[in-house]
Computed example of a mutant assay.
Amino acid sequence: MKLGRDITLWGLELGLMSMARGEVARFWFSPKYAYGPRGCPPHIPPDTTVLFHVELLDFIDSEECDVFFELSDAQKDTFPLEKVLKVAATEKEFGNYFFHKQNFGVAKHRYKRALSILDRSCSSEAERSQINTSKVPLLLNLSLTYLKLECPERALKYGKKALEVDQGNVKALFRCGQACLCMKEYSKSRDFLTRAQQIQPFNRDINNELKKWARCYEEYVETEKDMCCRMFDSSCG
Rank of each mutant, 00 (worst) to 15 (best):
R120V: 10
A179Q: 10
S189Q: 09
V54C: 00
S235C: 13
K171N: 07
P80T: 02
V221P: 14
T223P: 10
F52I: 08
L142S: 12
P42L: 07
A20K: 14
C216M: 08
F174Y: 13
D119L: 00
L173G: 04
D58S: 05
G22A: 02
Y220W: 11
L193K: 06
R195Q: 11
G4D: 04
C65H: 11
P137K: 00
S72C: 07
C65K: 03
Q75K: 11
A107M: 12
S124D: 12
T145R: 08
A88S: 13
W10I: 14
M227N: 13
S116I: 01
E219S: 14
Q75E: 15
N203W: 04
G11H: 07
P41W: 02
T48L: 08
I117V: 09
F52A: 09
M1L: 10
K148P: 03
F232C: 13
C151L: 14
A34I: 07
S124V: 02
G22W: 09
T133R: 14
S30T: 12
N132G: 03
A155P: 01
L149D: 00
P46L: 04
N169S: 00
V221A: 14
K2H: 09
A114S: 08
V106Q: 05
C228L: 15
G39H: 02
F98G: 07
D226K: 15
R154H: 09
M19S: 01
A20Y: 11
L149N: 00
E185Y: 07
T49N: 11
L156P: 00
L147V: 09
V87D: 06
